[in-house]
């Protein structure tokens, strides 16, 4: 019983670290290319997040399943092929079923292949942990990545276009801050959000750390 509880706790922790304490965007600063490029609106951020979540989850699961069969020397080559195939599946599916979203995301869906978040989780987690824990980790990381993209997309869409999910918030008289939608706006938004998060959560850590002395 105690053992089962401990296991559950372990799984829950694997899942939850990706959401906040080791969030890929705000903590690990991984996968910056899509983070900066496609977060011009909530919908784009969400779609990118979901595509990445799918690839990350499937790739981590597969890697965890076959990790013992793959010789150490060729593991990265194997992982990249697996990741690339899931990315291609996601890309084809989006093109076939959601052409508008696929068009908006442009080349960034195929570029999930080189999103370091996915290879990093495969290499640093899935390759050393059992399958169920890898799945929990990938789900947490993927959802953590997705909410980060949605948050950034929301801020940029709100100020850059005066709308949220295409619904006009500020009314017709609002003059959009175009820079927020331009690439520079991505850096500004990410910088401010990162700063705020560090400001509010970093302090506790610092206090804890200094109190150890």
């Amino acid at each position: 019983m105690a053992k089962a509880l401990a296991k559950e706790y372990e799984l829950g922790k694997d899942f939850s670290v990706g959401l906040w304490s080791e969030n890929p965007i705000f903590r690990q600063i991984l996968g910056m290319c899509p983070t900066l490029a496609v977060t011009t609106s909530v919908i784009n951020g969400f779609s990118m997040g979901m595509a990445t979540l799918f690839v990350l989850f499937m790739a981590s699961t597969t890697v965890a399943a076959i990790k013992k069969l793959v010789p150490y020397q060729v593991r990265l080559a194997g992982y990249v092929v697996i990741i690339a195939s899931y990315v291609t599946i996601a890309d084809l599916y989006l093109k076939g079923s959601f052409p508008a979203i696929s068009k908006a995301l442009g080349p960034y869906v195929p570029l999930i292949v080189v999103n370091c978040l996915i290879l990093a989780r495969s290499e640093s987690f899935a390759a050393h942990h059992p399958m169920h824990r890898s799945m929990a980790d990938a789900a947490g990381m993927g959802i953590g990545f997705a909410w980060g993209l949605v948050l950034l997309g929301g801020i940029r869409e709100l100020f850059g276009n005066g709308s949220l999910i295409d619904y006009k918030i500020f009314g017709a008289n609002y003059e959009p801050m175009v820079i927020m939608i331009l690439p520079a706006g991505a850096f500004i938004t990410l910088g401010i959000v990162l700063g705020l998060i560090n400001q509010f959560s970093g302090k506790e850590k610092m206090v804890k750390e200094t109190s150890c002395h």
Binding site: I66, V70, P71, G78, V81, A84, T88, I89, L92, Y93
Partner: peptide, 17 residues
């Protein structure tokens, strides 16, 4: 191993396509 991974992936992708 790499050959088998490649073959499985190719088969899967061909079907999805």
């Amino acid at each position: 191993v790499l050959g088998i991974i490649g073959a499985i992936v190719a088969l899967a992708l061909a079907n999805v396509y």
